[in-house]
Design a protein around this nucleic acid. Sequence first.
DNA 1: TCGTTCTCTTAGAGTTCTCTTAGTATCTGG
DNA 2: CCAGATACTAAGAGAACTCTAAGAGAACGA
Lengths: 226, 226
Amino acid sequence: MKPGTRILIVEDDSSIARLVQLELEHRGLSVRCAYDGPSGLKAAGEFDPAAIVLDIMLPGLDGVGVLKNLRQRGDKVPVIMLTARDTPADKVHSLNLGADDYLTKPFDTEELLARLKALLRRVEGDEVLRVADLEVDTATREVRRGERKVENLTAREYELLEFMARNPRRVLSRDQLLSEVWEQEFGVETNVVDVYIGYLRKKIDGSGETPLIQTVRGVGYALRKL
Amino acid sequence: MKPGTRILIVEDDSSIARLVQLELEHRGLSVRCAYDGPSGLKAAGEFDPAAIVLDIMLPGLDGVGVLKNLRQRGDKVPVIMLTARDTPADKVHSLNLGADDYLTKPFDTEELLARLKALLRRVEGDEVLRVADLEVDTATREVRRGERKVENLTAREYELLEFMARNPRRVLSRDQLLSEVWEQEFGVETNVVDVYIGYLRKKIDGSGETPLIQTVRGVGYALRKL
DNA sequence: TCGTTCTCTTAGAGTTCTCTTAGTATCTGG
DNA sequence: CCAGATACTAAGAGAACTCTAAGAGAACGA
């Protein structure tokens, strides 16, 4: 998530809104809050957020109404819906019409963060990362090595590769990879990074090409031409 | 986290300060403590730390005041705030003032370490150290001597070279190198430094170039053009 | 539900690195 | 120029590191 990315929270319970705001700002995001449907809609226009966290239950105009309105005026901003546990099923289903994700209250802030992150990644990163003749299309998650298309990367393998491609040439320590790709605190004793590097090598470097994934003994790994 | 990185702890509870100090020093960091706001400010100026761990509650001048002062005089040193209770006002306040992260007491030392590490990584950046025609890229750990790329430096060799490149022209004693690169206490009887200087010379100075690694008889070694 | 795929752990083999030892070379002061 | 001090080098043992195969359990999809 790029620092300064704008997030709009539309939520009538101001203490929940506040909590979420603090957590997001802590991550470097720029946050604005609205406390009812109409002002939420207005803020969506003026603030031009990269994503919206939208409560279903709202005074004035409810979340579904806000969403419908947004889509009608052609706004494709990604939206995460917050639904109370007892929200009728048909309402939840109607989310499929235009929400990108939803969360049931009460929710874990970590959970919201994770989904937001995923959502933003889908939207903000339509870059193609290039390292030597390796291409990683972050929008479609397609990977090519020269002419050859690399198929069947699993989710974890892809994330590892993308992170490395975002930091080309740099030597990345196992701790760094663990915390960035696996979101584990460092100090955990595991060799899962080594194993996944092995998997990637089979798929990326495994067809007689000059290897791009380098081991830096005693430190970690780097993605680069030798 | 590079060994020898200077960290300043400003915390009035000396037992907490002590605990943190011990943990950090154990990781090879160089730590100084201050126990009130004004002396914290002073230490920030004199000690020139790479990061500051700053308690909000302090006698004399509180953490927010210290931070404000630092920023006013243009000091961009990264700061982690320690907040006693989970007071949102404090969080927001300090983050707005330019704190880089915060932790709520009581906190886990591991947690602090993790955040410190992340912070330093963000700041430390990718320097390229240069001594004469020798280049040491600390991000990629690539080393060049003029046009020639120096390959196959082992971890220890690289660390020694990087440390010397960070202290160019300075004569470094064996004890100094032992404690900074090997993290050994003084007085150990070993000639491992000599041996590694020898390895480095083969790889750095070994191809007919004018030698950069000088022996200073009776004292130690220096990295410099003669 | 059942079978498949994915993730992560474990453990052992092979490799590379580190550091010690011991012997040789070089320097310096007298 | 010699003797003692200091620095350098080669070789090897043991430790540390990395890679891989195999498999258990979780997650996923039909």
